[in-house]
């Protein structure tokens, strides 16, 4: 076998081998969502990542699943994940205690287009847990504000108690050239903020469609509605980026579980332009 093929094979095997990491912190964000901080268990450091990438986290004896990295890309040495407890493996993951061991593979996937967004306004639209994969973008832009125009965050959640990172939302909103608008689908009488779906927030922003890049993450139906709002306001579909999800297993485009049309979400995504995949959204068979 030629050397180059052996190298590729070796790299593929390395990507399948989990690195042991120790749980350094577990913080409850909402009634069903937790943020875990992992640190290296041995000498080998945890890998760095780019905003939008994800890892495969392995709860030994239970299962492995893809989780987006939600921490600050500048902070070396730890990896942060925000996980919603919705099934057996995620429940096991959020039930881990400080000092427990987790297997980590990756990071995998194409990142958010922070280079392409330089010099432009960035409009981030998140729904529910979709804010987690976008938080590294916000960290990055706030650290490199001179390289970008305005940062606008539109964030929708089910109810006030489901809003993630509430303290951070407040502190981001206080920064110059940053607009943070939150909304909930259902509010009680103690909620004085906005009530309505996330698309109803568009009327409060001044979008410069030819001078903006949009990054969207949330349930797929929500992302379609958001894409239609951007389209109606003249944002070119090549400047609209969405984070896709499917049932990822290997993380390296090998097993085919996450195939979406001719693409693999894990390898070719999870970030795509709306121009690339817009016509496939809403297809039941995909």
């Amino acid at each position: 076998m030629p050397a180059i093929e052996i190298d590729q094979e070796q790299s593929r095997l390395d990507n399948m081998h989990p690195l042991a990491a120790r749980v350094a912190q577990v913080r409850k964000d909402t009634p069903d969502t937790f943020t875990l901080t992992l640190e290296p268990e041995g000498e080998e450091p945890l890998p760095s990542f780019l905003p939008g990438q994800f890892s495969m986290l392995y709860v030994f004896g239970v299962g492995e699943l893809p989780i987006s990295i939600s921490g600050d890309p500048q902070e070396q040495g730890t990896l942060v994940y925000t996980v919603r407890s919705v099934g057996k493996t995620t429940h096991a993951l959020v039930s881990l205690k400080v000092g427990d061991t987790v297997g980590v593979r990756g990071p995998f996937g194409k990142p958010w287009p922070l280079k392409a967004a330089r010099g432009k306004d960035v409009v981030v639209v998140a729904g529910g847990i979709g804010l987690a994969p976008l938080r590294p973008v916000i960290y990055y832009i706030l650290r490199h504000k001179a390289d970008y125009g305005r940062l606008v965050l539109l964030y929708g959640a089910r109810s006030p108690r489901d809003l993630l990172y509430q303290k951070q939302l407040e502190s981001w909103a206080r920064q110059a050239d940053v607009q943070v608008l939150t909304t909930v689908d259902y509010g009680g009488l103690s909620w004085h903020g906005h009530v309505g779906v996330v698309t109803t927030l568009f009327r409060y922003i001044r979008l410069q469609p030819l001078h903006s890049v949009a990054m969207v993450c949330g349930p797929e139906i929500m992302m379609r509605y958001v894409a239609w709002e951007f389209e109606a306001r003249g944002l070119p579909p090549g400047d609209l980026y969405v984070s896709m999800e499917r049932n990822m297993k290997c993380g390296i485009g090998f097993c085919g579980h996450c195939q979406f049309g001719p693409r693999f979400i894990c390898k070719d995504g999870p970030i795509f332009t709306y121009r690339e995949i817009g016509s496939w959204l809403g297809k039941y068979e995909l």
Binding site: I67, V83, V86, G127, G128, R158, D162, E245, R246, M248
Partner: peptide, 16 residues
């Protein structure tokens, strides 16, 4: 109710 927890067996999501 788009933000409700996904049903068991539904496609996985990074970050979910």
């Amino acid at each position: 109710d788009l933000y409700a927890p996904a049903k068991m067996g539904a496609p996985g999501k990074p970050g979910a």
